Amino acid sequence: MKVVCALFCLVVAAAAQEFIQTEEIDSYPYWYHNPEHLRYRRQLSADPETGDVTYRHKVADNGHLFGTLGSRGDAAFGKAGYKQNIFDDNRGKLDATGYGTHVISPYGSSNHLGGRVDYTGDRTKASVDVSHQMHGMTSLEAAAGARWPIGKNGDFSLQGTYNRMGPFQDYGARAGLNYRF
């Protein structure tokens, strides 16, 4: 019985779609332009180089909602999320982000959900990003680095990275000695 009702609703909806005539609106009604009915203007900004449209809205004391709409080549994308500052004091700065993306391209579409944690200290930085493609693989990106001063004009730095996407893994390390004469 449920299948019959669902099938009937589907047929009625499809038939209604076929018989609806589209109308063109020549002008907007008066109340649309009336200053009394103006709504809060969103804080949208377009990047002049890429044409991406971004949105940012502060929430509570240390958080904000964000979103981006844009395109790259034949693909269009949308990204939205929430970023929260956990602490920013003598220990350093710790930010946490949760996000979701949707990409539409000629090759299909994909959805990703993810989270990111970033730490920045006086001489250290670290980040971890985990994302999951719906009906697909989970990826993990981790990076950490530190810098130690040597005398007045130099410093030694060490960085490490780890990337995993499904069964594929990648490790990286880099050391550097900078001295300014």
Rank of each mutant, 00 (worst) to 15 (best):
M134Y: 11
R123T: 02
I104Q: 09
T120V: 03
G145R: 01
V59N: 12
N85L: 14
L140R: 11
V103N: 03
H112E: 08
P149S: 05
P149E: 05
H112N: 09
D89H: 07
H102T: 10
Y82K: 06
K58S: 10
G81T: 15
T54S: 05
G70R: 15
G92R: 02
Y99P: 02
S131R: 04
D95Q: 15
A76S: 11
A60Q: 11
A80F: 12
G81N: 07
P106M: 02
R116I: 01
L113T: 09
A146T: 03
N62F: 10
D61C: 01
F87W: 12
N111W: 08
R56T: 11
D89T: 02
Y107C: 06
R72I: 13
D95W: 05
G121T: 00
F87Y: 14
D122N: 00
T120H: 03
I104R: 08
G81I: 05
H112K: 09
N62M: 14
D95G: 07
A126N: 01
A143M: 08
I86Y: 08
Y107I: 00
D95F: 05
N62I: 14
T68S: 13
D88F: 14
T101I: 01
S131I: 02
F87Q: 05
G121P: 00
H112C: 04
H112I: 12
G145Y: 15
D61H: 04
A80W: 13
H64V: 06
V128E: 02
F87V: 09
L140Q: 01
G78D: 07
R91W: 09
D95L: 11
E141P: 01
P149Q: 07
F77Q: 11
M137K: 01
K79C: 14
D88N: 15
S139C: 00
D88L: 11
D122L: 02
R147S: 15
R123I: 01
G98S: 06
T97D: 05
D61Y: 09
D61G: 08
F77V: 01
G98W: 13
G78E: 08
M134L: 12
G63Y: 03
G78V: 13
G108P: 04
L140Y: 09
P149H: 02
R116L: 04
F77K: 07
K79I: 15
G136V: 03
Y119C: 03
G145I: 00
N62C: 09
W148F: 15
P149F: 03
A96H: 11
T54L: 00
L65M: 12
I104G: 10
Y107P: 01
Y55F: 05
D95P: 05
T54K: 10
G100K: 10
T97K: 12
G67P: 09
T124S: 03
H102L: 04
I104W: 14
G67V: 05
Y119F: 07
R116C: 04
P106H: 11
G81S: 14
H57Q: 14
K83S: 13
G92V: 03
K125V: 00
G136F: 07
K83Q: 13
G73T: 15
Q84N: 13
A143E: 10
T101Y: 06
T68E: 08
